[in-house]
């Protein structure tokens, strides 16, 4: 089992606690987390990525409990084992495309000589030395996917990766994510309210704020 959660809940200050359904995921498997806007999907993703602390419950990734990790150890664990694709690309604008990927390697203390191949797979080979400011929105999105994959993580978390894309692009991005996840044998979790994604990934859970 790559990922399993139990009794997860989270409470924003002065708001009712949100309870999340338990999740079980094996390597190479894909899962959708569906729900309306504001239902707490992104919160769940933050919990899974160790970006926020749950009020109750436990998250086990590759037999490691996230709540056992603190500070620097948690940051390093996240860098090495979890790749996150955010809603917006959020690239480091002072760096080139390739440097953005190298940065991920540096902070997670991992070496990856496949970065160029990765850019090739994502159709970004000729952009590797470009400033990220010159990229189109779609290219920036793909670079952010490449960055999430740069450390060959065990788990890939994607937050609404298709919300601003048309049908064709949506299919491409989802295919890309699935393909790359399979290639490195990682689990893939996509948080979305986009019903189109359901056509590509059948396995899903729903988050409902009570």
């Amino acid at each position: 089992m790559l990922l399993s959660t139990k009794n997860l809940s989270f409470s924003h200050p002065r708001q009712q606690a949100i309870h999340f359904p338990d999740i079980q995921l094996t390597s190479g498997e894909s899962l959708l987390i569906l729900g309306k806007s504001g239902s707490g999907k992104t919160t769940l993703l933050n919990l899974l990525g160790g970006l926020a602390q749950p009020a109750t419950g436990e998250i086990l990734i590759d037999k490691v409990s996230l709540s056992d990790l603190k500070g620097q150890k948690l940051d390093l664990f996240r860098g090495q084992h979890i790749g996150i694709v955010f809603q917006k690309p959020h690239l480091i604008t002072a760096l080139t495309v390739f440097e953005n990927l190298q940065l991920a390697n540096f902070f997670s203390k991992k070496k990856n000589d496949q970065l160029m191949q990765l850019l090739k797979d994502l159709g970004l080979a000729d952009k590797s030395k470009s400033s990220v400011l010159t990229l189109s929105e779609g290219e920036a999105q793909r670079v952010s996917i490449a960055r999430a994959l740069a450390n060959q993580p065990k788990l890939i978390l994607a937050d609404e990766p298709t919300s601003s894309l048309d049908d064709d692009a949506t299919q491409k991005v989802i295919d890309l994510l699935k393909e790359q996840a399979e290639k490195i044998g990682a689990g893939l979790i996509i948080v979305t309210h986009d019903q189109r994604v359901k056509n590509h990934i059948s396995n899903f859970i729903e988050v409902k704020s009570s």
């Binding site: 940051d75 390093l76 860098g79 090495q80 996150i84 955010f86 959020h90 480091i92 991920a104 902070f107």
Partner: peptide
């Protein structure tokens, strides 16, 4: 601030 958050998300420690 975004950059810093991203750096943390890809594995940077607070201290870094």
């Amino acid at each position: 601030k975004y950059d810093l958050a991203i750096l943390r998300a890809i594995g940077a420690a607070r201290f870094q």
